[in-house]
Simulated assay, not measured.
Amino acid sequence: MQRICLFPGTFDPVTLGHTDIIDRALPLFDELVIGIGVNAGKEPMFSVEQRVEWIKEIYRGQSSIRVTAYEGLTVNFCKQIGARFILRGIRYVSDFEYEKAIADINRKMEHEVETIFLTCSPEYSTIASTLVRDVIRHGGPAEQFLPDPVAASIVAAAKNKK
């Protein structure tokens, strides 16, 4: 049986914190599905298509990664794609408390799906998409928090606006 894992998130934008978790999770699973959750109640900074494209570009040539968008309950999407694991990144203790509550609810809804927590590497523990969006919004040097393809795309878009 294949070990398929879903790494759900908004990835708005994809940061070095995300890629740290993805890179370290790759050897643990046969397939890692990066699931971009679509929440009708939230207005993202970047389109779903842009976020999918970034991840595909970052992991081009990595056959064990699949990228897709989804709506609805994460455990339902896990069943749809045959994932028995959900991957979550943890930066701080407060992240763990929040993520554990979600994991507990998911486990009650779907006993077959386990949540796996990876702590991010110390150098990425302060990187949060929310903070990076603020840096981008105000024209700050966000490149240091972003994978190269994402940084290049955002810098190019900023130059086109001028």
Rank of each mutant, 00 (worst) to 15 (best):
Y98T: 11
E97H: 08
Q2F: 14
I65T: 02
S64V: 03
E110L: 15
G37E: 14
L28H: 08
P141W: 13
P147R: 06
S153V: 09
N39D: 11
E143T: 04
D23S: 08
F145R: 04
F77Y: 05
D20H: 03
V48D: 12
C78P: 01
T119V: 08
M45P: 09
F46P: 14
E97Y: 08
H111V: 13
V14F: 12
E97T: 11
K108V: 07
P141I: 11
A101P: 06
E112A: 08
R88V: 00
R51Q: 05
A69F: 06
A103T: 06
I86F: 01
I86R: 01
L146N: 03
K100M: 15
F96I: 02
R24W: 02
K162Q: 09
N106S: 07
R91D: 00
R66N: 00
E43S: 13
R60L: 02
E71F: 13
K162S: 11
H111T: 15
G9R: 05
L131I: 12
V135F: 02
A157I: 04
S153D: 15
V155H: 14
E143M: 07
I105H: 12
F96M: 08
H138N: 13
L26V: 07
P147Y: 13
G82K: 01
I36L: 15
V135L: 03
D104L: 15
I21M: 08
V67S: 01
A103E: 03
G61T: 00
I21E: 04
A40W: 11
N106G: 05
R107Q: 08
D95P: 02
K162Y: 11
P122K: 00
L118T: 00
V38W: 13
S64I: 01
K161L: 05
D134S: 15
V38P: 12
L146G: 01
E97S: 09
I105T: 12
L26G: 05
G41T: 11
C5M: 06
V113I: 14
Q2T: 04
P27F: 00
T74M: 07
P141V: 14
T130W: 08
I65G: 00
A158V: 12
L146K: 10
A69G: 09
G72P: 03
R66W: 09
H111G: 12
L32W: 11
F29L: 11
K100S: 12
H111A: 15
K42A: 09
G82S: 00
F85R: 02
T15S: 05
I36V: 10
L26K: 06
T10R: 15
I4K: 10
T115P: 02
